[in-house]
């Protein structure tokens, strides 16, 4: 008897974003994403190293229907990018996570600072000390809250994960530099699933590692390369309610999807179309409209991922993929088995 399991497939939904160097309805080198309980999306913009752009480094809050809700945070000038940087400013922002109360925690890997913003976008707290001791951090690159509102922080240059209370008090840590199980090389993104298990994008080891809530190694998958299940610098990881794992395979410009056990399912390379904000912008300028009409290979080229860097999923089976080099996110929907009944 042959059993065919319905394959997991994905349908492209839509694209959100456009390039907005300073602020407004768009992004500038978006690097991280999260959602709040009302399913509003928070995108953290890494922005530019070019001092002229202001505020450029910011958090943009918007709906899945591409309505801008608000933005908060701003950049600090490189010359002032030290411990004295004003509250609410960023130099090299990397990660964002929301606590149960809806406060946004933003990590900055240059300032080695976690900034906390309330729902109005006011910076209400900050913490973080450079170092390699317990509770000290060196280039934080990933943030995730567990069910108890404890913050798991990827401490990238110390090649470990540290767990803090949301006030920044050290609780525990795991990991060290290396290539063995439970060891890391400049880890980046982090995700905690419904069981409290922890997934880390072990960036320079080109693999994903999974741990239990106490940091005990559970499994790993992936190796360097371009084939199925291989990675070239994985940056972000997300797990949906069915345990399916999504990984942004940054330098391979693709998203890979895996079963809960790490078995490869499929690869997405991008389906982007013109977003609502993008259409609004293009329509302002007749030369852009004409240019797009005449452009050769536009549809094929524009759909591809460029620098997919972060991924998030919601309980409705939607997958949000952030592309740092294209100032947008692409949204996909996971398809369930198709019964195909009904009238003809």
């Amino acid at each position: 008897m042959v059993t065919e399991i319905a394959p997991i497939t994905f349908e492209y939904s839509h694209t959100i974003g456009r390039q907005e160097n300073r602020s407004g309805s768009g992004f500038f080198y978006p690097i991280a994403i999260t959602r709040d309980e009302e399913n509003q999306l928070y995108v953290l913009n890494r922005g530019s190293e070019t001092p002229a752009f202001f505020p450029c480094k910011r958090v943009t809050v918007f709906t899945v229907d591409e309505e801008l809700v608000r933005e908060f945070g701003t950049k600090v000038h490189p010359e002032e990018a030290d411990a004295s940087a004003p509250d609410g400013t960023f130099m090299w922002p990397t990660a964002i996570a929301l606590d149960k109360a809806g406060n946004a925690y933003v990590a900055d890997e240059w300032l080695n600072r976690i900034s906390v913003f309330d729902k109005d976008g006011e910076c209400v707290a900050k913490w973080g000390t450079l170092g390699d001791g317990d509770g000290e951090i060196n280039r934080p690159s990933g943030l995730a809250f567990d069910a108890d509102d404890n913050l798991y922080l990827v401490d990238s240059v110390n090649h470990r994960v540290q767990v803090f209370t949301k006030e920044g008090r050290f609780i525990s840590k795991f990991g060290r530099f290396g290539t063995g199980d439970g060891e890391f090389d400049h880890p980046w993104g982090i995700e905690i699933d419904g069981n409290g298990d922890v997934y880390v994008a072990d960036w320079r080891n080109d693999r994903i590692q999974k741990f239990d809530r106490d940091g005990r190694f559970l499994m790993k998958f992936g190796t360097s390369g371009q084939g199925d299940g291989e990675f070239n610098r994985p940056t972000g990881v997300a797990v949906d309610k069915d345990g399916i794992i999504y990984v942004t395979d940054f330098k391979n410009d693709r998203l890979q999807v895996f079963h809960a056990d790490g078995a490869f399912i499929t690869t997405l390379t991008g389906e982007a179309t013109l977003s609502k904000w993008g259409r609004e912008r293009v329509n302002l300028d007749p030369s852009m409209v004409r240019g797009r009409e005449r452009a050769q290979g536009l549809i094929e080229k524009e759909k591809l991922f460029h620098g997919p860097i972060a991924v998030d999923v919601d309980d409705e089976g939607r997958i949000f993929v952030v592309e740092c080099s294209r100032q947008r996110l692409q949204i996909f929907r996971k398809q369930t088995a198709n019964f195909s009944g009904g009238p003809l």
Binding site: Q19, W277, G278
Partner: peptide, 13 residues
């Protein structure tokens, strides 16, 4: 050159 893709809205190609 081929007709290029305009910089709006997603950046240059």
């Amino acid at each position: 050159i081929s007709n290029g893709i305009p910089g709006q809205p997603y950046g240059r190609y």
